[in-house]
Design a protein around this nucleic acid. Sequence first.
DNA 1: TAATTACCAACTTATTAAATAGGTTTATAG
DNA 2: CTATAAACCTATTTAATAAGTTGGTAATTA
Lengths: 143, 143
Amino acid sequence: MMISTKGRYALRVMIDLAQHQGEGYVPLKEIARRQEISEKYLESILKILVHHHMLIGLRGKGGGYMLTRSPEQYSIYSILLLTEGCLAPVACLEKESKSCTRIAECPTLPMWQKLDSLITDFFNKITLADLAAPSLPGNDYAI
Amino acid sequence: MMISTKGRYALRVMIDLAQHQGEGYVPLKEIARRQEISEKYLESILKILVHHHMLIGLRGKGGGYMLTRSPEQYSIYSILLLTEGCLAPVACLEKESKSCTRIAECPTLPMWQKLDSLITDFFNKITLADLAAPSLPGNDYAI
DNA sequence: TAATTACCAACTTATTAAATAGGTTTATAG
DNA sequence: CTATAAACCTATTTAATAAGTTGGTAATTA
């Protein structure tokens, strides 16, 4: 498997926030309740998103979280990359992977690279708006 | 990440065997040396492949492993599926996943299903022959 | 019958995922 | 000005999985 709960939960939260745009700041407690995810665990995920300016977090009474842009302006790729760290299908393609000595002769590397592009393109073409929107003709991704 | 060493090593072994077809049975020791993989770890991977008739294993002096078909007849998908168990990009799509209560309303499920098809198709279209063959015009996968 | 090989089950170690605990800081409503 | 509600922060724990090792047994053949 490739996408952990961190990435999947992050997506669900972002969709939740997209669907509650215009309601001001939405507190974590509310999101956690709606999404049935532990508040404390969500916290650690939202921290990443705030830190990278995908969200604004406002403290204190009346505070909560809010999107910084409109849903069309978030690619699913950007959200998953932040929370998962890396979306490569094999260790060989990871940035930190101490370069394998067999790279030059590896008969499988080109295949992994093609798959990686395929996946990257797939997620880059989908936006938060596609997932948050109700089902409409032309929207392949909505339920 | 998605494909562990088990699946990656399995592919390398199958390619190695494809490239040494016609040399009779190839002992594990030789494969392990060429591929720089621990003999004992390889053993556990080859066991799976033999058990599912992807390979024949012959014991005793002069024994070793051999493909049961020609390389064109193995899809990469079939090899990875056996050794990895499941290639689904998210837990939600795994067979054993205790069915999530949110399936009916999950705004991300259609996306995961599309990605899963994409990956399955990708691996199904590539055969062992594609990876084992030398680089030729029309072979996108060889080094 | 000795050497060589595959086969088998159990165990260990390392890494990562997933979640929890227990606080501090900031803002606002009253 | 104070109680409350919220985000923020660091460290720790637990669970699961990946990765590899140990120590054998069974079959085959030179």
